[in-house]
């Protein structure tokens, strides 16, 4: 199996690694970098548990090869908290009980975080649309929607 040298910035830190051509980004993050906050829930790109930001845009890291991340910027759930302060999206999920088992949560938060970056004041419909590629089996989404609204309100009052 051919090996490739890749340089990836993950949550601000530069990494240089030798990877197989077929290595998935999610396995690179989880197993080589031991960033296990990004989860795996399916094999057909449906669940979104593996969502990370690639150059600021949400991608399903189970459907991206590690080599495709070469020279790019990846942000995972571990990168949300800054200087010991939770990101508004994390705070929103905490306050509004937006998580139960926590398995979908990192992917859900990454998708929502990206939504708020491009649309700081989304409607309920826009939130539901944005997270429609992320499955949650526990919460029934009601509180996830509220969590994103909570984060949006907090971000607005901050700025």
């Amino acid at each position: 199996m051919a090996m490739h040298r890749i340089r990836v910035k993950v949550n601000g830190a530069a990494h240089e690694s030798e990877v197989e051509s077929r290595l998935l980004l999610v396995h690179y993050l989880r197993e080589m970098l031991r960033l296990t906050g990004t989860h795996i829930g399916c094999d057909t790109t449906h669940c979104g548990a593996c969502t990370v930001l690639l150059d600021g845009r949400p991608v399903k890291s189970c459907t991206v090869l590690a080599v495709q991340a070469d020279g790019r910027d990846v942000m995972t759930v571990e990168g949300l908290e800054k200087d010991g302060k939770l990101d508004p999206i994390q705070e929103g999920f905490f306050q509004e009980h937006g998580l139960q088992c926590g398995y979908c949560t990192p992917g859900m938060m990454m998708t929502s975080h990206a939504l708020l970056q491009r649309n700081p004041n989304p409607s309920e419909g826009e939130i539901r649309q944005a997270i429609s590629g992320n499955l949650c089996r526990c919460t029934g989404y009601v509180n996830i929607v509220k969590s994103v609204q909570h984060a949006a309100a907090a971000a607005r009052s901050r700025s």
Partner: peptide, 21 residues
């Protein structure tokens, strides 16, 4: 009251079976 388990899940610090190495 807010959930005591959330701080680890929110930070990607849960410990599920596949996280064990």
């Amino acid at each position: 009251i807010k959930r005591k388990e959330d701080p680890r899940f929110l930070r990607g610090r849960g410990n599920y079976v596949d996280d064990i190495q």
